[in-house]
Design a protein around this nucleic acid. Structure first.
Lengths: 190, 190
DNA sequence: AAAGATAATGAATAAATATTCATTCACAAA
DNA sequence: TTTGTGAATGAATATTTATTCATTATCTTT
């Protein structure tokens, strides 16, 4: 039996990310995508019902992967600071290591292509971070600011850093990562 | 003489922003734009050579307006802290007051439509912020982190806050603005 | 108020792009 | 070697969207 597994699908995902990175949002044309993924245009339609389907599946796949990655090793019962550092470092590393995916998730957030169900699941995936920060407030370790605001500073910072790193504006060495952690923590700490 | 001034142009700009806000990046279709701006499709082409021209002029117009707005009253010779607070507050207020413009500037940054010259001018407009933070480092008031990183935290935070505020996730009252200033300053201060 | 000039219209056309499907290909079983 | 079957192709078609331009409307000048 031929291999109908995810090989081709993955190739399409990869190529789509590369194109979005290179050409931006508007650069994702099915014909170009086919060329980049080294297959015929029609082949894409064996794996995806439509462009919309492609975008949605790519989005949720990456969002899940991202969430899994930055929650790796996270134990809600461990001390707050341990959890904070773990998630922060995971989050930064995940984004730095996958700038194309990161940019995609940023760019397609609230695109007309995305189904509401997909956006809702995406929100669910981030919930543990909210819970951790709320716990931090209860334990008097974190500022008494709205959780959304705390999250905004952390995610906004990571997004901006990732973009900077990817564009070659700044190479994130280990020393710089430490500096970033200090900045992130100083921003939210009580 | 008929009024060929900026009335129609402004209407087109406004409608374009509204559409980008509502439908996202991909939702900017010339025919829909014409309807939204309450004019015929052809009329747009009396004011803009092409869609690309429209995007570029909208982008640079908004970027200039934004820079002018967040540098308003800024005196490079005033004490550091005064400059920092002024720019931060201006920047946050400017973005909160113009979430559509803010989102547009975010979304179209490095779109394939944007001319390099436009992007370059955009970078120039932000230069005073870099200079201020470098001075802060020299005066030992600001962390010894790369300036790009400091800027990343500040702009990333504002971008995320603006998006949050615009989507109704959090209303930025005066108290919350103070909290945000504290978070921003704690993040970069030495 | 007529003529001339400028602005606006929107249906028609051009251009770009998504999608289909008749055909070919690659492999496996007989 | 032949035949069957799912996978892949890519030119052809459908669809969507940008742009044009002949026509109409609106204003200005005399």
């Amino acid at each position: 039996m031929r291999n109908i597994d995810t090989d081709k699908e993955q190739a399409i995902f990869q190529a789509a990310l590369r194109l979005i990175q290179q050409e931006g949002f508007a650069g994702l044309k099915m014909s170009i995508l086919a060329k980049e993924a080294q297959m015929a245009a029609g082949t894409i339609y064996l794996y995806f019902k439509s462009k919309e389907d492609l975008i949605n599946r790519l989005y949720i796949t990456l969002k899940r992967r991202s969430a899994k990655s930055f929650l790796k090793g996270y134990d809600p019962k461990a001390p707050f600071m341990e959890g904070f550092e773990l998630i922060w470092q995971n989050f930064l590393d995940t984004n730095l290591a996958n700038p194309e995916e990161s940019a995609f998730l940023e760019q397609y957030y609230r695109s007309p292509y995305l189904d509401k169900t997909v956006q809702d699941e995406a929100d669910q995936l981030v919930a543990p971070v909210f819970e951790l920060l709320e716990r931090g407030k209860r334990e008097r370790l974190v500022k008494e600011a709205p959780t959304e605001m705390l999250v905004a500073q952390l995610t906004g910072f990571v997004a901006a850093l990732t973009q900077l790193h990817a564009s070659g504006g700044l190479t994130m060495t280990a020393a710089f990562k430490n500096a970033a952690l200090a900045m992130a923590w100083d921003g939210v700490k009580r």
